[in-house]
């Protein structure tokens, strides 16, 4: 019973996800998300700008800032994919009619 509870808790925690431990992980996750947004033709310019800033931060030795910037780049790319999903049908709402 105790083992089951421990396993459940550990599974729950792993499912919640933890922030990438290193800048390399954070950057890789961001680049994967950016590639997905680009494939949909919906990438935002902000993601690339944030990655540039993150690269600069890591060069300056500020890895925690670099990780947070890379995470932000990933979030922007994920939002761009959500936009692509939404607009697949929502674009029709903008059409004019007399």
């Amino acid at each position: 019973m105790r083992l089951t509870i421990l396993l459940t808790i550990s599974l729950f925690l792993s499912a919640c996800g933890t922030p990438p431990a290193t800048y390399a992980d954070a950057r890789a996750a961001a680049m994967t998300a950016i590639a997905a947004a680009t494939d949909r033709g919906h990438a935002w310019t902000t993601s690339d700008q944030l990655i540039d800033e993150a690269d600069k931060a890591v060069r300056d030795g500020n890895e925690s800032l670099a990780i947070s910037l890379a995470d932000e780049a990933r979030i922007h790319a994920e939002l761009a994919v959500q936009q692509a999903d939404r607009e697949a049908t929502a674009w029709r709402d903008n059409l004019i009619s007399n």
Partner: peptide, 16 residues
């Protein structure tokens, strides 16, 4: 007519 970018604008929002 498709919204794009962080500002979530379509061409039509400005030009229609």
């Amino acid at each position: 007519f498709t919204r794009r970018g962080q500002l979530n604008f379509a061409c039509s929002h400005c030009h229609v």
